[in-house]
Amino acid sequence: MFNEEDIVHRIIRGDLRAFSVLVAQYEKLVFHVINRMVNDEQDKEDICQEVFIKVHHNLSKFRFESKLSTWIARIAYLTAINYLKKYRKPMFADQVQEVDNYYFTHENPQELLVKKDMNAYVNFLIGKMPEQYRIVLTLFHLEEFSYQEVGDITGMPEGTVKNYLFRARKLLKEQLEIYFSKEEL
């Protein structure tokens, strides 16, 4: 079984095999965060590597005040934010609207293509949303973090997390309503 405390202490003592175990344990979490924030396929792996190098470098500062997964997810989130600030590569060109007033724009040919599979279509729609919506949806639904943990990771107040989650899901539901109504035709 994965024992957080034991693994952390072993890594601090210089045990690289323990570090490898930690990476294997959390690589999915890190990938899910990076995957939602970054578009470039090659960059995704490099950023994931960077996240774990930062984890290794800063592990002695981890005080077990939160879950290790929350701490690692925060490093992943901040690394992705830094990357986006440095190499601003929006996933879609229409991501300039304000977060609170975000709405989906009209269909494009790419959208029509992904619409054949509902899960792929939902992922496509999430990819079009602002970063804040994307990250709260991923952390809450895919990684099953609580509202408070999502807040700790992203630095957003709990109320904002709830608000973004509600709005994001409502927007997705509205798009799916159109999707299902067209499917039935």
Binding site: L16, R17, F19, S20, V21, V23, A24, E27, K28, F31, H32, N35, E45, C48, Q49, F52, I53, H56, M118, N119, V122, N123, L137, H141, L142, R169, L172, K173, L176, E177, F180
Partner: peptide, 30 residues
């Protein structure tokens, strides 16, 4: 629709990091 949406939100992406990623990162740290 909400039920379908919640189901889709829980689905992991079909792709991920390459096999041997942990070894690659550990080598880099070494």
């Amino acid at each position: 629709i909400y039920q379908s949406l919640y189901g889709a939100l829980k689905k992991e992406p079909a792709y991920g990091l390459p096999y041997g990623f942990a070894t690659k990162v550990t080598t880099r740290v070494r």
